[in-house]
C-alpha cells in the first residue's frame, strides 16, 4: 500500500522539479521548489526518518520559500529602478 503512495509522491516531485527548472516566471519556479521540498519531506516520512522530515518541512518548505520570495521582490525592484 505504502509503495503506491510513495510512487505517487516521487512522480509529483519529478513533475514539480521540472516545472521549477523550465518555468519562465521566477515566482512559479520558487513555489514549485517549495512543493518539491514538501514532497521530499513526505518521502522522508515514508522512509521512517521523521526527524529529517520535520526539519525539511520547517526549513525547506516554510522558511526558504519565504526568503526566496522576499529576495525576488527586492531584486525586481532594483531592476526596474535601473531601467528607468
Amino acid at each position: 500500500m505504502i509503495i503506491y503512495v510513495a510512487t505517487i509522491v516521487v512522480i509529483v516531485i519529478i513533475i514539480t522539479s521540472l516545472i521549477a527548472v523550465f518555468s519562465k516566471k521566477l515566482l512559479s519556479s520558487i513555489i514549485s521548489m517549495g512543493l518539491v521540498s514538501l514532497g521530499v519531506s513526505g518521502l522522508f516520512f515514508f522512509l521512517q526518518a521523521p526527524d529529517v522530515a520535520i526539519t525539511e518541512a520547517a526549513i525547506g518548505a516554510g522558511l526558504s520559500t519565504a526568503i526566496f520570495v522576499i529576495a525576488l521582490k527586492k531584486v525586481k525592484k532594483g531592476e526596474t529602478k535601473d531601467e528607468e
Binding site: 526527524d51 522530515a53 520535520i54 526539519t55 520547517a58 526549513i59 522558511l63
Partner: peptide, 17 residues
C-alpha cells in the same frame, strides 16, 4: 519524540515571519 533543536528553531522563526 522526533524533532530537536533545528526544526524547533525553524518553527519559531516562521512564527516570527
Amino acid at each position: 519524540t522526533p524533532g530537536g533543536g533545528f526544526p524547533g528553531g525553524a518553527v519559531i522563526a516562521s512564527g516570527i515571519l
